[in-house]
Design a protein around this nucleic acid. Structure first.
Lengths: 336, 336
DNA sequence: CTGAAAGCGCTAACAG
DNA sequence: CTGTTAGCGCTTTCAG
């Protein structure tokens, strides 16, 4: 059916090896024969069979991208960044959506390893301390890069922001806007959640404020959790006049709850999120946020992975921190 | 490194073939030896090498999913639906984001075919009439399913809504809300764009209204295009009092423009979109929309493809139409 | 029921 | 510079 090297070889009366070498620009071949071969390849529209090639080289040119939730536009944007870097280099990206479930993640990574992906980029949903997965990858010498969520205990490649700094930046901003009683809707027990909480505390402390326990509510990833957490915060007394939310979806949910309670944003309560998802500007109240440069994260992770995949010896792991950037919109603007 | 069939065979003193057959439940093998083999496989954690297997069977258990834009949550949701159906059956999904570009799409599909995917699911960005890509797939006998955007001229498998009906449903709704001068921000020249426009016209005609040419503005896919198109519509006279927008992002942009012009939604201008993206409820004005059951589309397409991939002879192509469903929120609610 | 032979399409290593 | 030999890990075919 499809043209094989053998066909071209017979066609040209040379050996199969000559064809193989010509294709890959091997040095030990005369320019003349090489051109002859390449020309015929073009004519017959020869396409190398990468499966056969993989079989002998061990490389698949497949990269696994493991994400907690494709619907969260932060991750969709990361995915685009990754693909944009990897595809021109001949890699194909296989995306796995783990639905924020550590178990699914372990299973999916297993499948990908089985498929012999050349490398992995992972925004891990493993809760703090679960490292088996990464130990497995290291045992199998599969290059990987963690993104967004750093895992204490591994010293793997990482690309993302320092969550402490992100949390502090957001909180400082609310303080600068004159908020006196700043609440936090915290995220789940992964690095991003705990880091942002830490940053929130740090910023408050720096200004001689302290976080009232009832002003730290538990959200998760989605807007519905932000909605519920906010309802809870609204029942506390004194009522907060500013809220730093784990991420933008959570913040969007929180705003919904505030408006439903007939309070105003930012007048009564200022709100800030994180992630700068692309519709932040279109929400009920345009949402202030901290930008994490999602596509840069994807691209940088891809670069790091390429480096790791294409060098023989495992280079020292790198951690690349991208500075968080404040984006002020209406939801927190009280001054100026 | 990894365990191979050969290892197990030697280990057990049987032939490699016995192992191979045991693994795949071949009938001509005694239950006793089969169990012995399977047991040892489990002990050694044997994982079949699917590359070697592909090499001889020709099946890769890879499915290509070709989408115009992962950032649009409609497609992200479709992707989740597809993966949810395919993964349990042992398939891995390779997603390609074509950025709404027919050229990129052709190139990407080429790469996927080269990779020998067993099948494809495509939301095509080919503009009307460009069919080479699909003719190529048919020549190569690669099963594929089109989603969302039907291509007149192919009679391939299709899953999606009838865009005429969608457009008519949205427009009828605006009429029922008492709108007198209904505008449309139309989408690009793909089936969804032209179909929705047709439905809009049909509904108006049914009520003895006609579309003023200046009330049909050109948008594309994104919110910025909706914003600009709406600004244009606001300058027309008479000013529209209702707008049906190609999709939700466009509608979100349109609302932004209306509010900036100090007009009210829905009082001055009622707005409806399409797609029911998950944040529609959180927008400045909660957005009325037409739901297209995105995950159902993904799941149904996956089912159809499975059927096509796993049956020997090509079955007659099917077209599955999912009824559009009106979701009324504040942006269009003027009565009741 | 079990196994030996052949080969999928390609490349690495070495010989001419 | 060109070609030969050997195999990657598995399945298909066919003989015992």
């Amino acid at each position: 059916m499809a043209v094989r090297m053998k066909d071209i070889a017979e066609d040209l009366g040379v050996s199969l090896m000559t064809v193989s070498k010509a294709l890959r620009n091997h040095s030990d071949i005369s320019e003349k024969t090489r051109d002859r071969v390449l020309k015929r390849m073009r004519e017959l529209n020869y396409q190398p069979d990468w499966i056969a090639r993989s079989m002998v080289t061990g490389r698949t040119y497949l990269v696994g991208l493991v994400l907690p939730d494709l619907m969260h536009s932060f991750f969709a944007e990361v995915a685009k960044g990754v693909a944009r870097k990897l595809q021109p280099r001949g890699y194909q990206v296989v995306i796995s959506d783990t639905e924020e479930d550590g178990g699914i993640e372990r299973r999916q990574v297993g499948v990908l390893v089985n498929r012999k992906v050349d490398g992995l980029i992972i925004a891990s949903a493993q809760h703090n301390g679960r490292l088996e997965l990464f130990q497995m990858l290291e045992r199998n010498k599969i290059p990987y890069v963690l993104i967004d969520r750093i895992l204490p205990g591994t010293q793997a490649n990482f690309v993302g922001v320092k969550d402490d700094d992100l949390g502090a930046l957001a909180t400082e901003h609310l303080i600068a806007q004159g908020c006196q009683r700043i609440a936090h809707i915290r995220g789940p027990a992964v690095a991003t959640g705990t880091g942002r909480l830490r940053g929130y505390r740090r910023a408050l402390a720096r200004h001689g404020m302290t976080a009232r326990p009832q002003h730290i509510a538990s959200g998760e990833y989605g807007d519905n959790t932000g909605y519920e957490a906010m309802q809870q915060l609204l029942r506390t007394s004194p009522r907060p006049d500013g809220v730093f939310c784990y991420n933008d979806p959570v913040a969007a949910g929180a705003i919904k709850a505030i408006l439903e309670a007939r309070l105003r944003v930012p007048k009564d309560i200022a709100v800030i999120g994180a992630g700068n998802v692309h519709y932040s500007d279109l929400l009920r109240v345009p949402l202030s946020t901290v930008d994490q440069s999602s596509s840069t994260i994807g691209e940088t992770a891809a670069d790091l992975l390429l480096q790791a995949m294409e060098s023989k010896k495992p280079a020292a792991p790198q951690r690349i921190f991208i500075p968080p950037r404040l984006v002020v919109r209406d939801s927190s603007r009280r001054r100026g």
